[in-house]
């Protein structure tokens, strides 16, 4: 991972994919307004269908970041190397940031389509609980002074919380209905919303955002490592 984070090719790929998806996502007209390439024109969604290229990749990025954080926490417990702890911390921090972006883009979208910023929806509740868990993780880190102790305790909380969160995400949607596509009688995006034109932009956008989030996490892990070094010199 360390080597991968320092390579350049995927950062260029991230920029290219994101520029392509963002510019294309704004320029392609809705179906019915012109001939040629067009996004589907859905009754309630209308133009807001373009938010798909922002809202959904935020969640994919968050899940990817938290997964990496989880894997580094396991690695830290098997081999107490402070680099692993630094990665686990940095990826979780950026994961919380992307989760917040996912919530905000979702709230705007919900307001324009469902009429309210917040609904009692299992996916919304799942997202909110995930944010609470990882903010708690960051608070836990800030309460422990001793570095080795902090790394070990934070890693064991991270592993515990991630698996509990996964179990929760699998179970809760089975208890109630959701307004999200593919739940409770709502059609899934894959059935007709996510048509081939949208896919042309959605997949690059997803890959682009995930790569960008890893890039941010990589930069953050380097600044975090530098801050630790500065603290050590100060002492």
């Amino acid at each position: 991972m360390e080597k991968f984070l320092k390579q350049t090719w995927w950062k260029i790929l991230a920029i290219v994919f994101l520029l392509y998806a963002l510019i294309g996502g704004l320029l392609v007209p809705l179906a019915g307004t012109s001939s040629g390439l067009a996004f589907p024109n859905m009754p309630i969604l209308n133009e807001s269908i373009r938010n798909l290229l922002y809202h959904v990749p935020m969640w994919f990025s968050m899940v990817a970041l938290l997964l990496v954080s989880f894997i580094y926490s396991i690695q830290y417990l098997s081999n107490a190397n402070s680099t692993f702890d630094n990665y686990a911390n940095s990826f979780a921090q950026v994961g919380v940031f992307f989760g917040a972006l996912g919530i905000f883009t979702g709230m705007l979208w919900a307001k324009s389509t469902w009429g309210a910023f917040w609904t009692n929806d299992p996916k919304l509740n799942g997202a909110a609980i995930g944010m609470l868990i990882y903010i708690a993780y960051l608070i836990l880190r800030s309460t422990i002074e001793d570095e080795l102790k902090r790394a070990k305790i934070a890693a064991s909380y991270n592993i515990f919380a991630f698996i509990m969160y996964l179990a929760f995400i699998f179970v809760i949607p089975r208890l109630t209905d959701s307004l999200h596509p593919g739940n409770g009688g709502n059609p899934a995006f894959s059935s007709y919303d996510l048509d081939n034109t949208l896919r042309l932009f959605f997949y690059p956008a997803t890959i682009g955002w995930i790569l960008l989030s890893f890039w941010i996490a990589g930069v953050l892990s380097r600044t975090n490592a530098l801050n630790i070094k500065i603290d050590e010199k100060g002492e």
Partner: peptide, 27 residues
């Protein structure tokens, strides 16, 4: 155990535990 090891008070175990307790509470 985590909260006590980190030397904090009971409020930390509330912060750490409540989000994880929500699924069980619901069911």
């Amino acid at each position: 155990a985590i909260a006590a090891r980190s030397g904090a008070n009971a409020s930390l175990s509330v912060i750490l535990g409540f989000p994880l307790a929500i699924p069980l509470l619901t069911i």
